[in-house]
């Protein structure tokens, strides 16, 4: 039992000194499970998140926008893979994680269960959804788990292009026709509240936050990050010339922050529990890709096995 005690002490010291836990270090089972779940959900979100925008690649209205969007959606596949790679350092297997996703046993960010109705949605996803994601993710670059922190550094750097391309698209559209300006406002109306929900339930209703903060796999509470996002976004909306759909949104000079309206938490619960407008379709799409590709993956494995036999003869 000395070994276990040593492991526990080393782990506690590593966290205490703000150093990184590495895959082969001793770690509490709860820490390992929480990390695998957190990283896998994040990876799934990147992969499912390819779909809402991916649907517009073939329909992008200029070749420049098409190239940008294709590169962006490709980045999301890349981000998913960086994250699965981090999860696999903990002993998880990507085949198993994929299975959990397509059987609905592991969650992904509920934001991707909303439909993308117009090309303005591509811009608003970049601006608000990626903007919220960056707020959430920058602190994760200091996650106590080394491989996750390193993946997040790379992802955050790449995401900065995602947010800017979205905002630039919206700025361009706002200088276009009246119909285009209406598209941007409509997309903003639809994505604003779901973006705020991306930060998760309020602190008063977030059971795991305490342990996650203690383990330094979470650095700020949901409400802190949400507030930061609102404060960042308000001037961006003004510069763009769109109205954020919240009559209660106003500057509070006493707090030095913006006050904003009550979030419809029942909707969040509904969407998280799999009842979002696009939930079934998103999962079905991924399951189809996995099933349709099974014979291809098997063939490649069979070919590799044949060649190994040949070279060993």
């Amino acid at each position: 039992m000395t070994d276990l005690a040593t492991g526990e002490r080393t782990f506690a010291e590593t966290i205490e000194k703000d150093q990184r836990v590495e895959p082969r270090d001793w770690m509490p089972d709860g820490y390992r499970k929480t990390m695998i779940r957190q990283i896998a959900q994040h990876a799934h979100s990147e992969i499912i998140g390819m779909q809402p925008e991916g649907a517009w690649i073939t329909r992008a209205p200029t070749l420049r926008r098409k190239a940008i969007l294709l590169a962006k959606v490709q980045d999301e596949a890349g981000h998913g893979l960086y994250l699965y790679s981090a999860a696999e350092t903990l002993g998880a297997d990507r085949g198993d994680l994929t299975r959990r996703l397509i059987e609905g046993r592991q969650k992904y960010s509920s934001i991707f269960n909303y439909p993308t109705l117009s090309f303005a949605d591509v811009g608003v996803i970049g601006w608000l959804v990626d903007g919220a994601a960056i707020c959430n993710q920058v602190p994760l670059c200091r996650s106590s788990f080394g491989p996750y922190a390193r993946a997040m550094i790379r992802i955050c750097k790449e995401e900065s292009f995602h947010q800017r391309q979205g905002y630039e698209l919206l700025m361009t559209m706002m200088k276009g026709t009246e119909a285009q300006r209406a598209m941007v406002q409509d997309a903003t109306n639809r994505w604003w509240w779901p973006s705020l929900m991306m930060f998760g339930p309020p602190d008063t209703d977030s059971p795991n936050t305490g342990q996650s903060m203690a383990w330094k796999i979470k650095r700020h509470t949901n409400d802190e990050l949400r507030q930061r996002f609102v404060d960042m976004t308000v001037p961006q909306a003004e510069a763009l010339g769109v109205t954020l759909p919240d009559p209660d949104l106003r500057w509070n000079s006493e707090r030095g922050r913006h006050d904003f309206g009550e979030i419809d938490w029942s909707e969040l619960k509904r969407v998280i529990s799999g009842d979002g407008p696009m939930n079934a379709e998103r999962i079905a799409h991924r399951r189809r890709a996995d099933e349709d590709g099974a014979w291809v993956r098997e063939a490649a494995a069979a070919h590799a096995a044949k060649r190994t036999e040949t070279t060993h003869e």
């Binding site: 590169a71 596949a77 890709a289 993956r297």
Partner: peptide
């Protein structure tokens, strides 16, 4: 472009993209 999000493996979606 029509293959992105439905290739046999994620790495191949990157390649096709």
């Amino acid at each position: 472009q029509q293959w992105v999000t439905r290739a046999p493996e994620l790495e191949d979606e990157l390649a096709v993209a």
